[in-house]
């Protein structure tokens, strides 16, 4: 006799779930597979090859874009993490204060405003104040929209740390600064690290805002990919996409694992 299905199981739901997973993963997996195809063909498999990776990374244009992307991502994620850590300390510690809601909205503002609106607003602003568009404007823009992403894991971590640890530190003759430096900050570290990782990939990924606020000659990796796609598909694009995909998955997993780690 067949075991009757539990009443909580609906027919078709598992199939839809698999469809959902297929939709989410099929395109990027297809691209990853084709990046290893030795020949250009879509319909035939010419054997496994890393030739497209070699070709992509020998391209000086790609090299320059990669360097720019890394410089921007490191600078913006570090700056955003510092800003977010300070904000988390002000918001998640101590009793509520007037204006707390307003500050909270301000931190999350970059998430609420559509990217394209942020992009053109920043463009207008930089030009209005006579700021030369270039790597610096890109770093500033990235720092702004990375703050909420960095803030989230840091604030979550901080609100999970009981205040009695700081009490204990002060009871044991540490002043406020040293109680922060030797007790609270080390305990916050996993959250800060997770925030840094998220900010890093968010910066690495951005296209729309970078596209608007960058100056002539300053290209990041997503901009380079976009430029190449406009010309036509080439297996090199698949190779770069696969690398960026792996970088994202790596940093998200790292952020997830570290953020979850117990103190």
């Amino acid at each position: 006799m067949r075991k009757p299905k539990p009443i909580s199981a609906y027919p078709g739901f598992s199939q839809v779930t698999w469809l959902c997973m297929a939709l989410l993963y099929a395109p990027i997996l297809v691209v990853a597979v084709y990046s290893f195809n030795a020949i250009r063909s879509i319909t035939t498999w010419g054997g496994f090859s890393l030739a497209w990776y070699a070709k992509a990374f020998a391209n000086p244009h790609i090299q320059a874009a990669t360097l720019n992307s890394l410089v921007v991502a490191v600078a913006a994620s570090v700056a955003a993490t510092v800003i977010a850590t300070a904000a988390a300390l002000a918001l998640a510690r101590g009793r509520g204060f007037r204006g707390r809601g307003g500050v909270f909205v301000l931190i999350n503002l970059p998430l609420m405003i559509p990217e394209i609106v942020t992009a053109v607003a920043m463009l207008i602003f930089f030009l209005a104040i006579g700021f030369q568009l270039g790597l610096l404007t890109v770093v500033i823009a990235h720092t702004v929209f990375c703050v909420p992403f960095a803030y989230l894991p840091i604030a979550a971590r901080l609100s999970g740390i009981e205040t009695f640890y700081e009490d204990a530190a002060q009871d044991l003759y540490a002043d406020r600064w040293r109680s922060f430096r030797f007790v609270l900050l080390p305990m916050m570290m996993p959250g800060i690290f997770a925030g840094l990782m998220l900010a890093f990939i968010i910066s690495l990924d951005d296209f729309i805002i970078t596209n608007m606020v960058t100056g002539p000659g300053t290209t990041t990796l997503p901009l380079a990919i976009y430029g190449m796609v406009r010309v036509g598909f080439s297996p090199e694009i698949n190779a770069i996409s696969t690398v960026m995909l792996l970088v994202s998955v790596f940093f998200v997993s790292l952020s997830y694992l570290v953020g979850r780690r117990r103190a």
């Binding site: 993963y25 297809v30 598909f233 960026m244």
Partner: peptide, 25 residues
């Protein structure tokens, strides 16, 4: 479900275009 969100939106869209276009797989 979460991981795709963190993968570059441009790359995901490019992948979609790669798969769907006339000469695509």
């Amino acid at each position: 479900v979460t991981v795709p969100y963190w993968v570059n939106l441009l790359i995901r869209t490019v992948s979609m275009l790669f798969v769907l276009r006339d000469e695509g797989p």
